[in-house]
């Protein structure tokens, strides 16, 4: 809802679902889930994010040629947003951890889970552009694709990714569990 001419309230009607949705979905869905999974560390949550992103895409007028880049960035942002509101997930993981203490066999799984939690927390603390560039690059997007998606020059993608990797290492070290 926007304030329109002379202060009136103007509401945009959503567009009808685009005709190429299925075609784009079938080719881009694995990539979109993979991007979200790198952020969230969970397939089911990544699938939820992918659904959300394709719902939005379905009503958008994004040109088909730019669809993959647009979807990848939207998946990274949406997943990072989910991290911010991730208290429920943290609670769920804690519940799994508590349950696991009585089952020594899954001790490894608990370690993995804790490691994942620390990675998600570190990602959530990175500057948004760095986090998105990092996730997109590690999801297999080329420098040119990351540059186009984030409106960066290809030359600065390397710098942004490098800074993100340093920041991720520092964040993980800072919050490393004390042995």
């Amino acid at each position: 809802m926007l304030v329109g001419r002379k202060g009136g309230v103007v509401v945009s009607m959503p567009r009808a679902v685009r005709a190429d949705l299925e075609q784009v979905f079938r080719s881009a869905y694995p990539r979109v889930v993979a991007v979200a999974a790198r952020v969230l560390g969970s397939r089911s949550e990544a699938e939820d994010v992918a659904q959300e992103v394709f719902l939005t895409f379905g009503r958008s007028a994004v040109p088909a040629a730019e669809a993959l880049g647009w979807l990848s960035v939207a998946a990274a942002h949406t997943a990072l947003n989910h991290l911010r509101s991730g208290r429920r997930r943290a609670a769920r993981e804690a519940a799994v951890r508590d349950g696991a203490t009585s089952v020594p066999d899954v001790a490894d799984a608990v370690v993995t889970l804790d490691e994942r939690r620390r990675v998600r927390a570190a990602l959530a603390r990175l500057p948004r552009k760095q986090a998105v560039a990092l996730v997109l690059r590690h999801s297999g997007l080329s420098y040119a694709e990351v540059a186009a998606a984030l409106d960066l020059s290809p030359g600065s993608v390397g710098t942004t990714v490098r800074r993100a990797e340093i920041a991720l290492r520092e964040e993980l070290n800072r919050h490393a569990p004390s042995e």
Binding site: Y29, A34, E115, V135, H138, L168
Partner: peptide, 30 residues
């Protein structure tokens, strides 16, 4: 650093495109 980041972010995912499309195409909004 790149290898460490790759290991930290790596999440193995197998996706079922048909199931995903089924879910999307039956969502009220689409």
């Amino acid at each position: 650093d790149a290898a460490a980041a790759s290991a930290a972010l790596d999440t193995e995912v197998t996706v079922d495109v048909d199931a995903g499309w089924q879910r999307l195409s039956t969502a009220p909004a689409t």
